[in-house]
Nucleic acid binder design. Structure first.
Lengths: 125, 125
DNA sequence: CTAACATAACCGCTTAAACGCATGTTGTCA
DNA sequence: TGACAACATGCGTTTAAGCGGTTATGTTAG
């Protein structure tokens, strides 16, 4: 059951859970979005995203300068089912709402090109 | 989401997963049974059982010399639902069958009082 | 080509988890 | 009461995870 243990270990980190939760709210996020919404470092965000990538939780693709990440929702895959369960568990957390709202705000701020430099520090599309 | 991370961390260990799986097969196991079936140390088995106990996965009660452990299946509790999901995940592991068989053998051997000392090293009821 | 930016990889450090071993505790039985 | 069995736990060690800070890689714009 080593594989199962590794599966759960990949979920045994608060930052990774938050990242997955953000990607459930909105797929196709770049690293700078996640890093900004979570209020963390680029190094940390990127590292956890790579971790999730190698374990099959997310897929990535490049869009210009930005690396976009999204949930691996291949239909019928075990991951898809697991993600559903995970969503159910995370949604009952009090922080879930806060994070979701922060993400909305962040994405909205980026649509305003006259952002007051506080939001949208990066020029991620 | 710290609580959720801790929840998954409690499942991020192979020994603990195996213990939970054994308890899904047969509730009310003593430490010596688990330790024997998993082929591990008493110290290790006991420690992980206490760990699972403190996180609400299992309950315990004393039966003479033996400490009996069983899954915490309080109806309607979150743990009950989580255990169902966990059972689903673990059952698809190749080791699941082996462990289940080993447990059956172990329990059967204990019913034979003329055990050849290899099985039933302890006199657990 | 070069500067600027987004991201990944590296390094050293700190912390926490898991383990083995030994010891303590509790219950049973003679 | 003393010996023994089942179990819990304290301690020291080892190993792995996460993190901050820095550097390397890749991409675009000028």
């Amino acid at each position: 059951m080593k594989a199962e243990a590794r599966l759960f270990k990949s979920l045994a980190d608060e930052t990774r859970l938050k990242i997955l939760w953000l990607l459930m709210t909105k797929d196709k996020l770049c690293v700078c979005d996640i890093m900004e919404v979570l209020g963390t470092t680029q190094s940390k965000a990127s590292r956890h995203l790579r971790y999730l990538y190698h374990l099959g939780w997310v897929t990535d693709y490049r869009e210009g300068v930005w690396m976009k990440y999204q949930l691996n929702v291949t239909p019928g895959s075990p991951k898809e089912k697991q993600l559903k369960l995970l969503a159910d568990i995370l949604s009952s957390s009090p922080e879930a709402i806060v994070l979701r709202r922060r993400l909305e705000e962040r994405l909205a701020a980026k649509d305003q090109p006259d952002a007051p430099e506080s939001a949208a520090a990066c020029r991620c599309s």
